[in-house]
Amino acid sequence: MLYTGRTLKRLRLFAGMKQSHVAELLQVTQTTVSRWEAGILTPSESQQRALERLFAKVPSTADAALKRLVETSTARVHLICDHSHRLLAASSARRMEWRRDLLGAPMFRYASEDIRKAEGDLAELGWHEARIASLVVETGPNGRDDVPIVAGRVLWERIPLADGATGRLVTTLM
């Protein structure tokens, strides 16, 4: 399938991805993705195949509903890709807490030491093999002003996504 600029932009927006995220996944620059969407450049044959693979994973109706539920929640909650830690959705309360748009951004760089330790313990607990579906984690502060995390507790819940990947719903408990 040959993606037109308009189609590419529509698929990217529906997937909730930034141009920079598409660029990173396809190992091109954000400017290249922008030029594809504007119709100035046409992706090569191999890039077209990579785009097809990428957008074959466009969220299903169930994934879109999950994203909408997270975004309209009154709780402090967000959804990340369990593998890449990229932000897939966030409630308005969470976005206000962060004071910036992080959709598509990898979130692990903002993790506190307690969160990093909990992440390191997941394999031993059987998280990735789905032996456990949820876990309460002590967050500890991350000491950052840009995306602050305060000491507290969050609930991590594994959620299967339509493309076979796993999402992690993160809900602040206190």
Rank of each mutant, 00 (worst) to 15 (best):
M96F: 05
M96D: 15
F55I: 13
V70E: 11
Q30N: 15
C81M: 07
A93W: 00
A93R: 14
I40A: 07
K18N: 03
S92N: 10
S44I: 07
H78G: 00
L26T: 15
G39Y: 15
T74R: 09
V77I: 15
S84D: 07
L25G: 00
D63N: 13
Q30V: 03
L51K: 04
R68L: 15
L41C: 03
E24P: 05
R76Y: 04
Q47V: 03
A64F: 15
A93V: 12
E24G: 02
Q19H: 12
V70I: 12
F14P: 02
G16I: 01
S60C: 02
R53C: 01
T74L: 08
E45N: 09
H83K: 10
H83M: 01
V70H: 01
M17S: 03
G39F: 13
V22R: 08
K57Q: 12
S46T: 02
L51P: 05
V70Y: 02
E37P: 09
A56R: 12
F14D: 14
E52W: 05
I80P: 11
R95Y: 00
H21L: 11
A62T: 15
L79V: 08
A15W: 14
H21Q: 14
Q30L: 04
M17W: 05
L88C: 05
T61N: 08
R35S: 06
L69S: 10
D63C: 08
L66W: 09
A15P: 01
M17D: 05
L66F: 11
H85A: 13
E24T: 13
F55G: 13
T74M: 09
V33N: 00
Q48G: 00
E52I: 07
R68E: 14
A38K: 14
L87N: 04
A64K: 11
H85S: 15
Q19D: 10
S84F: 08
